[in-house]
C-alpha cells in the first residue's frame, strides 16, 4: 500500500437538500450524525447541523470510504482549527477555491476514532497501529452549495 503523509477529502452538496433532510429528520438526524458534544457546541443551528454532514462526508472520503463498523460519531469536532493544520488547509482550500470559485470560511479540528481511525492509519502508517490520528476541516457556503474540505494525518511524534 502506498503510504501518504496527509489524506485529503472534499465534499460539495446542495445546501437546500441537506437543510431539507435536517428538517425532516429532526432529532433523529442530529443524533445519528453529530455527537452529544457537537450538539452542545452548535445548539439550535440548522446550518451547523447541515455543515456537519458535509464535513463528515469529506472525512469519509479522506479515509477512503466507510469502513466496516463505520459510525458518523467516528469524527467529532473538538474545537478551533489547530496551528499544524492551518498551512495544509490553506493550501488545499486555495486550490479548491481556484478550481471551483467556492470559499471556505470556517475551520475546526476533529478527533478521529473507531473504524475510521483504523482506516486512516492503514493508509497513513500501516505499521503504527497506536499512533494518534488528527483531523481538521474547513467549510463554507457559496452559491447555495455547502463545501467542506478535510485533512487527516498521523501524529507519530505526538506533536499535534
Amino acid at each position: 500500500m502506498t503510504r501518504s503523509a496527509v489524506l485529503v477529502g472534499v465534499d460539495i452538496v446542495e445546501a437546500d437538500r441537506i437543510a431539507r433532510t435536517v428538517s425532516d429528520g429532526g432529532a433523529a438526524y442530529r443524533r445519528r450524525v453529530t455527537t452529544p458534544a457537537e450538539r452542545a457546541l452548535h445548539a439550535g443551528s440548522p446550518l451547523a447541523d447541515a455543515a456537519s454532514f458535509a464535513i463528515k462526508e469529506s472525512f469519509i472520503k479522506a479515509v477512503g470510504g466507510r469502513p466496516a463498523g463505520f459510525d458518523w460519531h467516528d469524527f467529532e469536532e473538538r474545537g478551533e482549527e489547530q496551528g499544524w493544520a492551518t498551512p495544509l488547509l490553506a493550501e488545499a482550500a486555495s486550490a479548491l477555491g481556484a478550481s471551483t470559485e467556492l470559499t471556505l470560511t470556517t475551520g475546526a479540528s476533529y478527533t478521529i476514532r473507531g473504524a475510521s481511525r483504523r482506516a486512516a492509519l492503514a493508509r497513513l502508517a500501516p505499521r503504527e497501529n497506536d499512533a494518534p490520528v488528527a483531523g481538521a476541516a474547513r467549510w463554507g457556503l457559496s452559491a447555495g452549495l455547502l463545501v467542506a474540505l478535510a485533512i487527516v494525518t498521523v501524529d507519530s511524534k505526538g506533536a499535534l
Partner: peptide, 8 residues
C-alpha cells in the same frame, strides 16, 4: 440484507 438509517 437491508440498511435502514436515519428514518423518521
Amino acid at each position: 440484507r437491508q440498511g435502514f438509517a436515519g428514518n423518521v
